[in-house]
Design a protein around this nucleic acid. Structure first.
Lengths: 244, 244
DNA sequence: CAGTGGTCTAGACCACTGA
DNA sequence: CAGTGGTCTAGACCACTGA
């Protein structure tokens, strides 16, 4: 009989855990449980919805991972402090991103060589000062217009064949993701002026504001690469949304 | 006996679901399952770890919600296409953010009044053109230095008492979160030049690059507010990290 | 058809908190 | 102590995919 009910629920609308989740979300949205308020316990929800505890737990755990509630063992579940809303920011391979917009992408390689690491570069990549590093400087175009100036240093130990890549065909991001599939990154997004060289490569004036992303990437703590990505402010922006 | 094992596991190290998750993460990090590869089925993992299927399911579901794997009913679990890594971007109440840095925050209110909505503002807020809207223009200071120029329009239906707020004490963001606790938002982050007025209010030159966030907020589809937040590029940046 | 993931149940033991 | 969340088990029915 229980099984029959599932089938019906699935056919008509939502899974039970989704119904519980929806109920709690509605209450949070309506202000019924203001930030910090104590929410119904698992046991209460089990009774109210006539479902098993595992089902309730799933709903609550998902709300927790979405940042909507805080759970404390022994105390209960609380409406989260909504002054911290978070969103998913996706940073993607530029080539893929441009193609998805239905536009053409091409790249100009201005530099691709081995160098001796300066002190800051060595520090970024966790290398000794004076170590060998790979350095590339590539300009990416969308429909023939310069979109990004990518100044990148790579730890040779992580990608020994990096410089053999044809960067007019494969972006460094794409190549490096293959070499070290899962990675962590720290990034900063800022507005600033381009350097004289960047302005020249991007075909803009040195006074033109740029959106600059500085990103350092590691794989299980080992530094792989650091990059400075400079975009003309008039041609690039980051969009996103919060979805509670 | 099973119960005893749990206790031991809990005491020694990780919960079983966490062990399964860790195993899969390691495999993804090492390249054992490159993007798109078929990963072990739930049944295989059940056997390998001698746990119940619910435990394996939890591990896989969490990896899925973190974007590390893709699951397709009837087919299996696949290593995600890691060209899309995502990160959590947190946008917070500026007052709270500044205090947390151990700095002082104060605000100057340059405008707080009811106006007739221009066409673009009305469109943003889903109102008729010519409707009444609330408009505030506030400059936020960190340790006495202008950090943000906040130009905001508010739908009066959502926050009738908005203009009664003392914005030198409570930020609009803070107030609005109380009125409509759970909300969705769309935002864009870009680099650009300030308007002449913004430059004057921020004490910068009109050529100085600014980090501009344009954000529109709704609650269950009803527009609440839209804001243009302008920051001197030299004083503000967004930082974050990817955590796979 | 066998294999896959999607979801649920009814029970269990546990650690934790505050009275 | 009663109440809370954290986690697990062993089973179940289901929809879906491809052979």
């Amino acid at each position: 009989m229980a099984a029959l009910e599932h089938a019906v629920a699935a056919r008509t609308a939502q899974a039970p855990y989704a119904r519980v989740k929806e109920y709690l979300k509605q209450g949070l949205a309506s202000g019924r449980w203001p930030p910090g308020a104590l929410m119904p316990s698992e046991a209460e929800l089990v009774n109210r919805f006539s479902v098993s505890r595992m089902t309730v737990t799933r709903a609550l755990r998902e709300l927790q991972s979405e940042g909507l509630v805080t759970r404390v063992q022994g105390l209960g579940t609380y409406a989260a402090n909504l002054l911290r809303v978070s969103s998913t920011l996706t940073i993607r391979d530029l080539h893929e991103e441009i193609l998805e917009r239905g536009h053409r992408h091409h790249a100009e390689v201005h530099l691709a060589r081995e160098e001796t690491a300066s002190a800051p570069v060595a520090a970024q990549l966790g290398l000794e000062r004076g170590s060998r590093v790979f350095h590339t400087l590539i300009v990416h175009f969308e429909n023939g217009l310069p979109l990004q100036c990518e100044d990148r240093h790579v730890n040779p130990a992580c990608a020994p064949d990096y410089l053999q890549t044809d960067f007019t065909q494969i972006t460094p991001t794409h190549y490096l993701l293959q070499v070290a599939p899962l990675w962590e990154a720290q990034y900063a997004i800022e507005a600033g002026a381009p350097t004289a060289r960047e302005a020249r490569l991007l075909g803009i004036a040195v006074e033109d504001p740029c959106l600059i992303i500085v990103r350092r990437t590691t794989n299980r703590g080992v530094p792989i690469t650091s990059a400075r990505l400079v975009h003309p402010g008039s041609r690039y922006r980051i969009e996103g949304q919060f979805k509670p």
